[in-house]
Write a protein that binds this DNA or RNA. Structure first.
Length: 550
RNA sequence: GGCCCCUUCGUCCAGUGGUUAGGACGCGGCCCUUUCACGGCUGAAACACGGGUUCGAAUCCCGUAGGGGUCACCA
């Protein structure tokens, strides 16, 4: 029977495809890797993780990293996902070199890069398999297949479409012709070449040699709608797109023998495979994959909303990918993480548990190494997207905002209190007059609750004297405030206070606390001197004056 | 259930026959200090279990247990 009946969209011979997609011309050792997401409306953090590994592998070997949209399941497709994926990759600096780079725009000579646009290629390959006798049509209905599985369960044998259970594997041409004449829908299945009890050894870049039973399942390659399954598409695409290293989740480990068999049947050299363990999450006594349904942090969007700096997420992931990264970072504090070379051999075979505290810690370090200017830019991008009101305040006076961010940031030991941009509106809100006004009630409450308050007279003197010389340096400022405090019964330091607590109203810390509450509406702030410098004379004097009478 | 993968402090990892089993995050304590941080010092904390092999095992072998994955016309 003419195989064209089953592959109406086939139009090439294998030789033609080989000629159209020739081996890439790349330096020795260059790796070609890819990310192949399904557009189901979601970008999983695991996708970012896999992309990071793949892209690094390609780039550190002068190779190529491409994006292939695996949209062969039209039922599950969600519109707009490709944009989401592209945006997510771009946000974290993982944009592909090749493939779809913007809606409808492609880069590269190995496309199309959407599987749904590659029907002619898949069907051509399947037609070849059909002609070689490595594939056959199967007209079994869903009900028949279910009945098969029920029977297998009853007899307690291995479920699946294989061996004598593969009812269409050895049908006569007459049976096939009859089914065709009756217009029954069909799929095209692989004629599995694995022998009973045959075992094969397959290499994995992370895990070494792995032993499996040879594949005996006559897996579906072409669905009834003519679309390829993942299995066929993977083999065909990774061959003709000339992928050298497939990096994918370890859920594919069990179908690896099937894929290896398909490469062999086509006569193609398989790429190297690296099966990585997914990021997991503690769930009661056990662990499980981060799930899209239950775990908000499974979504890349969550990190974008929280405003984790791009490099924080990447460095955290790098920690999971290659255990030497942390040491490397310690030895090279000022070098971009791009310089770090990952090695798959160092990847953990077991799944890593997602650790938010660790991410936060990495993020603190990353932000700690950023300049006020860099933070300003990144935080403003975040704010424009996620907190427009704050963005307006923040952008109103860029040099003021940057001065705020620069507090305790210059010098050898910068503050490390910023973890994500989303904390900024609350953390530095008091610097902005409109949001400070909203905090006034809280400030007064906190002030009254203080163990020691300041007399209006003292408050006035502080305001007046500071108004006269706001440009004191830190030492002068400290000395001035200490003396002034002493005149009003505040011990100049803790030591003096502890020696004779009865002789003082409070200590210098109490005085500073009161000023903090008045100026910042909170007790925990960065260095008070710097805050006053940044706020400026007007604000300081104004806020102090309006606190008289509290 | 069959098959496959995995198993060192709470977490992420070092460790590839001989180590007081190391680091980081987190947690506790102390110090520094105008609060909060930062920083420094310090403490508690692990080789899943059972058999072997060996003078010697976290490291090699075999079991057991536990966890995960997979057995779709989803990827």
């Amino acid at each position: 029977m003419d195989s064209a009946v089953f592959t109406p969209q086939a139009q090439y011979t294998l030789e033609e495809l080989e000629a159209r997609f020739p081996p890439r011309v790349l330096p020795e050792g260059a790796r070609v890797t890819r990310f192949g997401p399904s557009p189901t409306g979601f970008m999983h953090i695991g996708g970012l993780y896999t992309s990071l590994v793949s892209r690094r592998l390609a780039h550190q070997s002068a190779g190529q990293f491409y994006l292939r949209i695996e949209d062969t399941d039209k039922k599950r497709e969600v519109e707009g996902t490709v944009d989401l994926i592209l945006a997510s990759l771009a946000t974290y600096g993982l944009s592909p070199d090749e493939g779809e780079i913007a809606d409808g725009q492609e880069l590269g000579a190995y496309g199309p890069y959407r599987q749904s646009e590659r029907m002619a290629i898949y069907q051509s390959c399947v037609r070849w398999l059909l002609d070689q006798g490595h594939a056959y049509p199967c007209f079994a209905s869903a009900d028949e297949l279910q009945a098969l599985r029920d029977e297998q369960a009853k007899r307690k044998v291995q479920p699946g479409y294989y061996g004598s259970w593969a009812i269409w594997r050895d049908k006569t041409e007459a049976d096939v012709a009859a089914a065709l004449a009756a217009s029954l829908p069909f799929t095209i299945r692989l004629r599995a070449s694995g022998l009973r009890d045959e075992r094969i050894t397959l290499p994995d870049t992370i895990r070494g040699d792995l032993e499996f039973p040879a594949n005996q399942t006559d897996v579906v390659m072409l669905k009834a709608d003519g679309m390829p399954t993942y299995h066929l598409a993977h083999v065909v695409d990774d061959h003709f797109m000339r992928t050298t290293d497939v990096v994918r989740g370890n859920e594919w480990l069990s179908s690896y023998p099937m894929h290896a068999q398909m490469f062999a049947l086509f006569g193609w050299a398989p790429p190297r495979f690296a099966h990585i363990s997914p990021i997991e999450k503690q769930d009661g006594g056990s662990r499980r994959k981060l799930s899209k349904r239950h775990d908000p942090e499974a979504s890349v969007g969550w990190y974008m909303e929280a405003g984790y700096p791009r490099d924080a997420v990447i460095e955290y992931l790098l920690n999971l990918i290659d255990s030497r990264f942390e040491d490397w970072r310690g030895e090279n504090p000022d070098v971009s993480h791009e310089q770090f070379q990952i090695e798959l051999e160092h990847m953990s075979r077991s799944g890593a548990l997602f650790d938010l505290a660790k991410l936060d810690s990495v993020s603190r370090e990353v932000v700690g190494a950023m300049s006020a200017h860099e933070i300003y830019d990144a935080a403003l991008v975040w704010a424009s997207e996620h907190d427009p009101q704050f963005a307006v305040r923040f952008a109103a006076d860029p040099s003021y905002s940057q001065a705020i961010l620069d507090i305790e940031r210059h010098g050898e030991r910068p503050r490390k209190d910023i973890v994500r941009w989303s904390q900024l509106p609350a953390d530095i809100g008091y610097f902005f007059d409109d949001s400070f006004a909203e905090l006034l009630g809280e400030a007064r409450e906190a002030y009254v609750a203080l163990s020691v308050c300041l007399s209006d007279e003292l408050l006035c003197r502080i305001a007046v004297e500071y108004g006269h010389s706001p440009d004191m340096n830190r030492e002068q400022w400290l000395e001035w405030l200490r003396e002034l405090g002493l005149a009003y019964g505040f011990a100049p330091n803790m030591k003096a206070f502890k020696v004779a607590p009865g002789e003082f109203r409070g200590h210098f810390g109490d005085l500073a606390s009161a000023l903090r509450v008045i100026l910042a509406a909170r007790r925990n702030t960065p260095d008070l001197y710097e805050i006053m410098q940044v706020l400026g004379k007007e604000r300081v004097v104004g806020r102090l004056s309006s606190a008289t009478g509290w």
